[in-house]
Design a binder for these strands. Structure first.
Length: 693
DNA sequence: TTTTGAAGTCTCTCC
DNA sequence: GACTTCAAAA
């Protein structure tokens, strides 16, 4: 045991025999070794379907039974869904004791810590969280105010600026290196990037705004500083467990190092073959280099697959064996028998859709519940045709992935009203809100914001702003609305929902004028109102929305049905960590999967391969991979073009599948052939980093 | 200066 | 097909 390891006050509590049995009886040797590992760094290499979550949950249970207080255990996951799943299963295993365990995504945990300790580090605790879209908009305001968007040669757009910024913060690769690698055409703007980033940073600080990257960066800076505050934060937990470690980035690795400085009780679980988040700066170096980073790491590989039948594993093992650098795992199963996975060639998209729907209905009639069936695809929009057909045939489904609801302009519009009330300095929201008003455009809006800035964003700054004559009516209406909302109480049941209703008295008319199809948009706002009903105040509502946006339509307040028997449609990314009895992977076409945009580099192609691997390994008993042979190309108004099957389904993989061609209308297989002075000033550190004024 | 209409761009993954 | 950008009209 290392010197710095902490000695635990062992307070053995009565271990209920049932729990002990559960633990011993359901884990195999490797799983149990991981679950009962004593203190010190532990790396679990867990192939798909090898009981990773069960092992992690059992380890939590073991720690609690060993006497570790639940609230001193932190479980970090990568997605919200994984966090919920993990905590729910822990509760099933150890009962209510597990409720004290802290769990969540890195971002949500950072948020909790910053609200609590930020003030002691120079970060006002009432900051507003910007989502990616907000951050991009603020970047745009910086770009415009620096006059960089004007004509001449094309200066990178806000999305590009934000991407480079975010990548730099998360990976710590210097900006020039990022430009050389990803945007060689923008290398000449190196200085421009630096200027925009400095202005963006200064703006965030002045406006009391925090972006997603700041959440992680501030957390890292906090625990890396020297002093009592860092001690307190890193001393909050005695054990930290991290799921999906292959998807963490450099910054997150720093956070973990800081959080574990008082002990080395870090457990990470991951599978390098399932690393699919490099666009967020994730690097498999974290998992590959973990043993070197933490001396004395015990490595436990989990190789027995409990999920899929052998024929399915034959296909997925072959697929992933083509990948380059990885921890070699040989997944095996004791599950014999089962049908070979199907490779389905459809005549075109509508045949693909019909095949999928018909097969789903068949499976359903044979007794497979809908919730045990999933349809997976590379990107959210690829399920459009399928969604129409499912709706027409009255098959209930929910869709995972994509953040469409919160990204919708009308939803952001309504939220902007609430946000300026909550944070009067929220420039992004002011700008958005002002542009909504008839007679107010870009120039007027920015003028108003400058005027408010001069008045130090006081509550009546906007009221005292003198608008141009044309904008007077809109200005008055907005002032009245905001005044009315300010004079209401801000705490209480349904108050947020009431505020939205009030906003909509002004906004709904604007919406009707701006959009053609208003009904679905109004329905979205109704849903927003419903969601808001569950929060005690604006601040809680807005933060929750930024960190835990409603994901499936089901989350939006309809029914309450995780009980409901509904089909799942999901992006491959969002499907990770889940499993279904039957899985359909549609659009296995070269250019879609892998996406043509990812063909630039070998690494990107490899990531696409891993993504397909993730999708295929979700299946327990039935796996269908489909692709349409002909696609009507609407872009050029051209005729049908012939598709190529995904390059990942090479000869070796295809030989392990049975092939079907679908041409007839019924979709049947036709030719089956086989406050105080801050101790640390986070914002000063941030400022220094980008040379902001 | 704002609005509107037309041409042009680019299509993702998630906190 | 949706959103952005550009140019011309109000």
């Amino acid at each position: 045991m290392p010197d710095d390891a902490r000695v635990y006050p062992e307070r053995p509590r009565e271990v209920e025999p049932r729990h002990a049995n559960t633990l011993a009886g359901e884990l195999n040797e490797a799983q149990s070794r991981a679950a009962t590992h004593p203190d010190g760094p532990l790396l679990i290499i867990a192939g798909a379907g090898t009981g990773k979550t069960r092992t992690l949950v059992s380890r939590v249970a073991h720690l609690i039974e060993r006497g570790v207080r639940p609230e001193r255990i932190l479980v970090l996951t990568f997605t919200r869904r994984a966090a919920q799943e993990m905590l729910a299963r822990a509760e099933r295993l150890v009962g209510s004791a597990s409720r004290g365990v802290h769990g969540g995504t890195f971002h949500a945990t950072a948020h909790r810590l910053l609200r609590r300790f930020g003030a002691e580090a120079g970060l006002p605790s009432d900051f507003t969280i910007m989502d990616q879209g907000d951050a991009e908009d603020l970047m745009q305001l910086s770009r415009a105010s620096l006059g960089l968007g004007d004509k001449k040669k094309r200066f990178p757009k806000k999305e590009t600026l934000h991407h480079v910024y975010s990548r730099h913060v998360n990976t710590e690769i210097p900006v020039p290196a990022i430009l050389s690698e990803e945007y060689p055409q923008f290398r000449e703007y190196e200085e421009g990037f630096a200027k925009v980033f400095a202005d963006y940073t200064a703006r965030k600080i002045d406006r009391n705004l925090v972006d997603y990257d700041d959440l992680l960066l501030f957390w890292a800076l906090l625990v890396e500083s020297n002093g009592p505050l860092a001690e307190r934060i890193s001393g909050m937990y005695d054990h930290i467990l991290v799921d999906e470690y292959q998807d963490t980035n450099h910054l997150q690795a720093r956070i973990l190092r800081g959080m574990c400085r008082a002990h080395r009780n870090l457990t990470v679980v991951g599978d390098d073959a399932q690393s699919i988040y490099s666009f967020r700066g994730a690097t498999i170096r974290n998992i590959l280099d973990f043993p070197a980073q933490y001396e004395g790491t015990v490595i436990v590989p989990l190789e027995e697959n409990y999920r899929s039948t052998q024929p399915i594993l034959d296909v997925t093992n072959t697929l992933i064996s083509r990948a380059e650098e990885r921890y070699t795992k040989n997944l095996f199963t004791k599950r014999t028998g089962g049908e070979k996975p199907w490779l389905v060639t459809a005549h075109d998209e509508s045949f693909q859709t019909r095949f999928v729907v018909d097969r789903i209905l068949e499976l359903h009639e044979e007794g497979t519940p809908l919730r045990e069936i999933a349809v997976l695809f590379r990107a959210g929009y690829m399920s459009a045709d399928l969604e129409i057909e499912l709706t027409a045939r009255n098959i209930p489904f929910e869709k995972w992935g994509g953040l469409k609801f919160l990204e919708a302009a009308h939803v952001k519009d309504v939220l902007a009203f609430l946000r300026v009330l909550e944070n009067p300095r929220d420039e992004v929201s002011w700008y958005r809100l002002l542009l909504l008003m008839p007679g107010i455009g870009d120039i007027t809006a920015r003028g108003a914001i400058d005027a408010m800035s001069l008045l130090m964003w006081s509550a009546d700054a906007f009221a005292s702003y003198e608008p141009p004559p044309r904008a007077r009516a809109a200005h008055t209406a907005l002032v009245q609305l905001l005044d009315a909302l300010r004079s209401h109480p801000t705490e209480g049941d349904g108050i947020v929902s009431h505020e939205i209703a009030r906003v909509r008295r002004l906004y709904d008319d604007i919406l009707r004028e701006r959009y053609d199809r208003v009904e679905p948009r109004l329905a979205d706002l109704d849903q927003l109102q419903t969601i808001a009903g569950g929060y005690p105040n604006r601040a809680a509502f807005l933060s929750a929305l930024a960190l835990e946006p409603p994901q499936a339509t089901q989350d939006l307040g309809f029914g309450s049905g995780s009980e409901d028997d509904v089909l799942v449609l999901s992006t491959a990314h969002s499907s990770k960590g889940r499993e279904w009895d039957a899985v359909f992977v549609i659009w296995a076409v070269d250019g879609w999967f892998p996406m043509s945009r990812a063909l630039g580099s070998a690494e990107q192609i490899e990531e696409e391969r891993r993504l397909l691997y993730v999708a295929l390994t979700r299946a327990r008993n039935h796996l269908f991979v489909t692709y349409p042979l002909n696609v009507y190309d609407t872009r050029r108004g051209a005729d049908y073009s012939i598709d190529q099957l995904s390059r990942f389904l090479d000869r070796g993989v295809r030989e392990k599948m049975q092939r079907v061609v679908v041409e007839k209308n019924d979709g049947a297989p036709v030719s089956p052939d086989a406050g105080t002075r801050p101790e640390i000033d986070l914002r000063a550190l941030l400022r220094g980093r980008f040379g902001a004024a």
